[in-house]
């Protein structure tokens, strides 16, 4: 296999407790720590391991967004990606347009595999990989917890609701990754220095011929209905009696 594309989305960091703005226009992102979507780090780790085993020659990380996403791409390069592409736009990109962008990059690069996170932890959509596979007319292996390459095929084990499903796919294909696929490596300081010299291409969204939309638009944001703290019991007898009062046991 020649090239693997990996998508890196810039999202609010996993550890930030996101707050809805008081006017309901969005969530507070000012001054909030931004990171690579954690699932995308797992996607990149998998691509790097495939390349390190000699089963691929190049790993390219791709992001769509403002110039600030260069930060996440540089982190991806420091992890070990060979080069990066930033598709620049200041517009919010819907999932289908994101998939179309990836399809354009796939065609330009002649990629053999695209590995993405199974969902982004901001919009929790879980759509882009499946949509890319659809418009590319290629297999999708979503929620992957194991990927075994075999020439121009791959066996992928998927986390489904009842257990683990294994499918076999022909390459090229799209894989979206779940939590248990691997543990992403830590970036070391010398790698960060090296990453500065690696190529990072910036392509304006318009150059790819993709016009965003028609999107599912956000109209209003609200905090979730909060559950109230209930009672505290002192011991098991108290717990059992509280459960009995509610008719639950």
């Amino acid at each position: 296999m020649d090239k693997i594309l990996v998508g890196l989305k810039r999202v609010v960091d996993y550890n930030v407790r996101v707050q809805v703005k008081s006017d309901g226009s969005g969530v507070e992102t000012d001054g909030v720590k931004m990171s690579i979507n954690p699932f995308d780090e797992i996607a990149l780790e998998e691509a790097l391991r495939i390349r390190e085993r000699g089963d691929a020659s190049e790993v390219i990380v791709v992001s769509i967004g403002t110039a600030e996403a260069q930060q996440q791409l540089r982190t991806g390069l420091a992890m070990g990606a060979d080069r990066a592409i930033l598709v620049e736009t200041s517009d919010a990109i819907d999932a289908l347009s994101g998939a179309r962008v990836f399809k354009e990059i796939v065609d330009r690069e002649g990629a053999d595999m695209v590995i993405l996170g199974k969902q982004a932890i901001d919009d929790d959509n879980s759509q882009t990989g499946q949509m890319l596979a659809a418009i590319w007319g290629r297999p999708q292996a979503t929620f992957a917890s194991e990927v075994v390459l075999d020439g121009d095929k791959a066996k992928v084990t998927r986390e489904v609701d009842v257990g683990l499903e294994t499918i076999e796919i022909d390459l090229p294909a799209v894989i979206t990754v779940d939590l248990r696929l691997n543990e992403p490596r830590y970036v070391k300081l010398p790698d960060i220095m090296k990453a500065k010299k690696k190529p990072l291409d910036q392509i304006p969204l318009g150059d790819l011929g993709v016009t965003p939309g028609p999107a599912v638009n956000a109209v209003e944001f609200a905090p979730p209905e909060a559950r109230q703290r209930g009672i505290t019991v002192d011991d098991v007898a108290g717990l059992v009696s509280a459960l009995k009062d509610k008719g639950l046991v």
Binding site: V18, V20, I121, D124, V216, N217, F221, A222
Partner: peptide, 15 residues
């Protein structure tokens, strides 16, 4: 629909 792990609920409108 919920976003951000349920930290926010967004009302969305499809075309």
């Amino acid at each position: 629909r919920p976003i951000y792990a349920g930290n926010a609920i967004v009302t969305v409108e499809a075309p």
